[in-house]
Design a protein around this nucleic acid. Structure first.
Lengths: 160, 160
DNA sequence: GCGCCAATGCTACACTATAACAATCCGTCC
DNA sequence: GGACGGATTGTTATAGTGTAGCATTGGCGC
């Protein structure tokens, strides 16, 4: 796995298994929902999962082109849109890039810690933060639908 | 003010005065800091403040072109970069658009409530939310630098 | 076979942002 | 006054991100 990219913060892991877990979960979810995880969609999901760094749509396209010569921008964006719709990936707005979702299945807006040095991005699920977001919106009678939380900085590894 | 755009959530206000306040504050801040709020920069700031909706860089360019025929994309992006650097405007990442900062002077990452219906975007300053963000980052020894919080949904006015 | 629908192919284009270098302006120092 | 230097703006070109719109394919039910 030469192109593996950064591991979860603070630990290395078997990234091949990590990808396989994500793909297996995706297959199950799509089957259960009666939606099609087509070869293109699965390949795109796999590419996004190649690392724990957000990956740009055109990087996905470059990689996808190797196996699907006819791939074009719409090919990729359709697949990304599908995967986002199914909650299998997230878009990192501040980077215009995409990241595999670690909580696939439970629709949610992610919260992310983005290291500006190594690029590794960790999705966190922080209940208190979620509560604070809801409370902040409620304070002005705002009906929250999507919550973008992206914290940039230095991960523990890169800070040292 | 035909092009005023949405007011602060839940209330109308004298938007002309609103703009003037922002410009006056900007002039004071820049003078105090010894940086130049040039005519172009001031005009761009004024354009961003024309409404309480985030405005795209090319919309700024269209408007700026009326008074500065030589304006080009770099003209606008330089001004926007300057204004962001001085904490006078924010970029709304999920919209690729820019919004006047209501807390100019105190450098901070903003927190925003973005109405998907009317576009009005309110900057909120929620201490508890700020605390929750810090705590979430700290939990994984992440050194937070920039925090993007953008909540999309329906404002109170549009929900009814 | 035929109609239908989802997915993909394909061309073109719109929108967002930056690189790179030239020209200008203004203040300072000699 | 003139040379230098830094900040700002002018200018052209291009990189990067995302979508519109319509054609084609392939499976499935009838």
């Amino acid at each position: 796995m030469a192109a593996q990219g950064a591991a979860h913060a603070h630990q290395t892991h078997n990234h091949r298994a990590c990808i396989e877990d994500a793909l297996a979960t995706a297959r199950e979810l799509c089957a259960a929902r009666g939606v099609q995880l087509t070869p293109i969609r699965e390949k795109v999901l796999q590419i996004v999962w190649r690392s724990h760094k957000p990956v740009g749509a055109y990087d996905v396209l470059d990689e996808l082109s190797r196996s699907h010569k006819s791939a074009r921008p719409p090919t990729v964006y359709r697949a990304l849109d599908f995967l986002m719709g199914e909650g299998l990936i997230h878009k990192i707005e501040s980077l215009n890039a995409y990241l595999g979702c670690v909580e696939a299945g439970a629709p949610h807006s992610g919260q992310f810690l983005i290291c500006r040095h190594c690029g590794a991005t960790e999705e966190i699920v922080d209940r208190k933060l979620e509560t604070a977001l809801e409370a902040a919106a409620k304070r002005t009678q705002f009906a929250a639908e999507r919550k973008v939380v992206e914290i940039s900085g230095l991960c523990a590894r890169c800070a040292s």
